[in-house]
Amino acid sequence: MKRKILPFIALIIVISANRLIPDSELQPAADRPYFFYVLCLLTGLYAVYFLLSLAIGALHDKLIHKAPFYAGVILLIGAIDLVTSKYALLPVLFFPCLDRVFGVFVSDWRLMGECILASGKLLLIGFGIGASLGFLTGLLIGFSGKANYWISPLMKFIGPIPPTSWSPLVLSLLSTTYQAAVFMVALAVWFPITLMTSSGVQNVSNSYFEVAATLGAGRWTRIFKVGVPAAMPSVFLGVFYATCSSFVTLVTAELLGADAGLGWYLNWQKGMMLYANVYAGLILIAGICMIIITLIFRLKDRILVWQKGVIKW
């Protein structure tokens, strides 16, 4: 119970500091105390969470576990507030006050929305192409000795090269920068999924294939009803790696001349020396990445119910 109060204490400390200590003269003032609004919003959200946890047992256990962490994060943000807004200990051009950073979400929301849509589309197309090709390549390598012989060395060769370093070649071969960006995202996704699918298939215990054979299963059943499901945990690990690397690649690929998207937004704001906007963009990207990864984990838990208590990662 005491642990669950910790985030409230942290919020009170941070809000008091924010309200009582005047902003440094060096910091250009924001038009509104947006950071204070964010703190109020957090307090409200946490209060709801807290109240729900009183009624729901599972939520209570989770909150007990997470409460100190939340409190720590809140204190950290409070410290950043002190360092930037209150005492301006760092160059104010590069470290704007939090009021201005959060203010960007209000002033730029329309542009940010467009950027999310543009990046989302790019990510979806690139991920779709890369993941399906990666899955197929992985199955091929996993099940066919010949494919393994010819493609595996190629994988080892291509693997360590960051996808974006293909840009000079790709830009000269493809007709639009958009296609180039799709290609690079697809490549970033293809590699980890191919690798994890093939190693997943190769690590399937032979006894499962033998069981299937004695039950009269043909070749396709053995591949798709035994090899594929048995390799699924590994494939999901690949999807997880692929998501992370697709984000990294996405942001860089959009620097190549896109006219919308999160990477483009960051680059453009940096060019204009609007660091508050850059930070807001970073927060946005981190938030979206976190949401996507959470969704993937949910999906994993749903598809891989059978491995609860069998494998953990």
């Binding site: 054979a213 499901p229 891989l304 491995q307």
Partner: peptide, 28 residues
């Protein structure tokens, strides 16, 4: 070659962990 005319019960049960009991039994 292996065939469905000879059922085989392995020393370890070797059930397919991704299938429930019903589907394991129905596999063949």
């Amino acid at each position: 070659a292996p065939g469905a005319d000879r059922g085989y019960a392995f020393q370890q049960a070797n059930l397919f962990p991704w299938l429930n009991i019903q589907n394991n039994i129905a596999f063949g």
